[in-house]
Nucleic acid binder design. Sequence first.
RNA 1: GCCCCGAUAGCUCAGCUGGAUAGAGCAACGGACUUCUAAUCCGUAGGUCGCAGGUUCGAAUCCUGCUCGGGGUGCCA
Length: 658
Amino acid sequence: MNVLAELRSRFRTALESLDATAGEYADMVLPSQDAKFGDYQANCAMPLGKRLGKPPRDIAGQLVEQLDLTDLCETPEIAGPGFINLKLKEDWLVSQLQQTINDHQQLGIIPTAEPKTFVLDYSSPNVAKPMHVGHIRSTVIGDALCRILRQLGHRVISDNHIGDWGTQFGMIIYGYKHFADEAALNEDAVAELSRLYKLVNQLVEHHETRERKIPEIEQQVVELVARLEQMHDATELEVDKERKKAAKQLKQAEGNLAGLRATLDSLRNKVAAVDNDPKLSELAAAHPEIGTAVLAETAALHAGDQTNQSLWDRFLPACLQSIDEVYNRLGVTFDHSLGESFYQSRLAGVVQDLTQRGLARESDGAICVFLDGHKAPFIIQKKDGAFLYATTDLATVQYRLEQWQPDTIVYVVDHRQSLHFEQLFATVRLWGHEDVKLEHVSFGTVLGEDGRPYKTRSGTAVGLSGLLDEAVQRAHKIVSENDDAREKPLLSAEERLQVAERIGLGAIKYADLAHNRTSDYVFSYDKMLAMNGNTAAYMQYSYARVRSIFDRGEIEVEALRAGGTTISLDEPAERALAVALLRFSEALERVVADYRPNHLTTYLFDLASAYSSFFENCPVLKAESDQLRNSRLLLCDLTARTIVRGLNLLGIQVVERM
RNA sequence: GCCCCGAUAGCUCAGCUGGAUAGAGCAACGGACUUCUAAUCCGUAGGUCGCAGGUUCGAAUCCUGCUCGGGGUGCCA
């Protein structure tokens, strides 16, 4: 049962009987901020009173008279300026829980009244380079959204838009042609390809930095220094305001200058690192045009060059397999993995169609879509004829519309690409696709404990598998130490390994999901593996503690569920737990409303807290009577099942003992 | 320059379309283990919600300006 939805629906009826257009205020029924105000509160009397020109408390009174809540709630109370406080009836709570006990499929979750079709685009790694920390958020958030939408009864098509056709592959091809070690390639193709990619990328960067970036910044420094000279003169200004402004600009310019010089230093160090390495500097000298050569290899691939195509055919399976290994470990699956290459044949048609419709035109040799409110155009074909990810994304939208007729396409991609998606969406609209909803579900950067993007000491991105290994290893240490500290250890060596895997992976996923996706978050093993606070480990521990009661008491769960015991909620901790259990649906709806899985983690944490309180205050196996014992066991059972279901919807597994 | 996002307790973060005295966890302090997993629980302390105005019955939340930080910004993805 979605309690909130039910209450809103009852309020809607009452509101409309007061004023035909007042139904919208039903959304102002909310969970109470403070338990002392009851379980839910309605704040609609204030704005409605204002609109009708009547005292809000009178409106509240009329509303309460109109409301039909007798089955659900105690008599509503009017407080303050016109808040209506609602407290759920105990017998209603009991009846709802009672229904949930044998509802294995839905566990009380109400399927949506209006199922929609979603295409979910997430993860989207590049085949050439190993997955790194940056991919984790898209993968984990996307997977959770996929599971939750499905649980609510929506049709979801998950599609991994793999980057298998871009410049990175040109790098691999170039690397293969010039630097390949055939023996290594046969031994471990992915490792060798990754080495080639890194090498070529480094050389390209090297030339790019030396020949373009550094001179550019040097030029900027010169200009800025010149401007600073003039600004010093400006401090003689008479007028206070202007002098203040000039001082501020001076300060900013000085800051900019320092920043530029720091950038310059780091770039020069990078160049020097290659120059000082005899092997690398030799390679760099031998491949002065590597940047354009790589683009040429990419262009040749796109143009159907036989050699490059066959290299692509040869290398791709191994790349995909290594990606799949990560997904298998994470338990993430996709309905489709239609990479960029899949859309190759449609790209020319997309450009042609947009051009013919007069939506795109040539500018400086490139084909561009110019959009209102955007200074920069959306470039769909480069002057050298190559297509871009803008083109592929347009073709992808077209294909998805044809193939699946979705109501919504969701892109789980980091926030740095928001401009791209703004332009993409605007272009899709111009193209005539008005009906489909397009959502960029963006998320922030994963930071290190120093507050800067999470990188290795050498400055490269942290590899994803290493990250998972580290978390699992730390989890194993914690699990072992804890178990060893017991009088009689619970876990076999094998069990410890399995538990560590689930706790470690769960920690990473949960930490990611528990943060509001739009903000950056600081990656910390210690925090994510903590037993206190809003972590996977705490949730898993809560679950294991519930299960231990069933073990200890040798309880047959099926018999218990079929036993027909009436749940009683006399203790405040029991009642609080019951209310928490019934809010599961509500939490899932909130997740879906704005694609924020952290609403579910918050819910689960609140549920686990309510359970802890209950566990502390209400003896279960030693309850005063069999009736009470069974009632509490049922509450335990429902808690355990809700935690499992909730964690599973986040892609996290539980353990029976830890 | 322009555009987007952010700033909440010492630290890491919540805060649902404006609601009652702004909440967690960590760290600090004080309690609770002959007890169903103490990897826990309970309590205390800690905040001019970046700054200044405005909108209104009511603002962390909406509007304007400012400060600071991050990101993006014509042929990478």
